[in-house]
């Protein structure tokens, strides 16, 4: 936890840097999709998507400066999604 959640004014530079990074990652994900990496194409695409998600969540959604409870709520949804994926695939992969 850094700074007061509701008082924190993020400098403009941070928002523009994050937006630039998001556009670079968009170009990167399209670029990589044109190269044949076999099964790793989807891995790279998802790593880039997660990186973009983290940029949006941490900076645009202010989670970086938010309370521990917000961190908990934000990661809770992802955790339950992971459980949904894991239990479903544990069925399909062991048939």
């Amino acid at each position: 936890m850094q700074g007061l959640p509701s008082e924190h004014i993020v400098p403009l530079k941070v928002y523009f840097t994050v937006a630039s990074a998001l556009f670079v990652l968009l170009a990167l994900t399209v670029g990589v999709s044109l190269i044949d990496l076999g099964p790793f194409n989807i891995v790279v695409a998802l790593v880039i998507a997660v990186a973009k998600m983290l940029l949006v969540v941490l900076f645009f959604m202010h989670v970086r400066w938010s309370s521990r409870l917000v961190w908990l709520f934000a990661s809770g949804g992802i955790l339950w999604l992971a459980i949904l994926f894991a239990l479903t695939m544990s069925d399909f992969l062991t048939r």
């Binding site: 959640p5 917000v70 949804g77 999604l81 994926f85 479903t88 695939m89």
Partner: peptide, 27 residues
């Protein structure tokens, strides 16, 4: 803070709302 947490809780339910479709896609 309560309002903010309320929206994050709603978004957690939204992740699972879309999650069903993402799971179908995965399978």
């Amino acid at each position: 803070e309560v309002g903010r947490l309320g929206m994050w809780l709603f978004l957690a339910t939204e992740i699972l709302f879309f999650g069903g479709l993402f799971t179908a896609y995965l399978v």
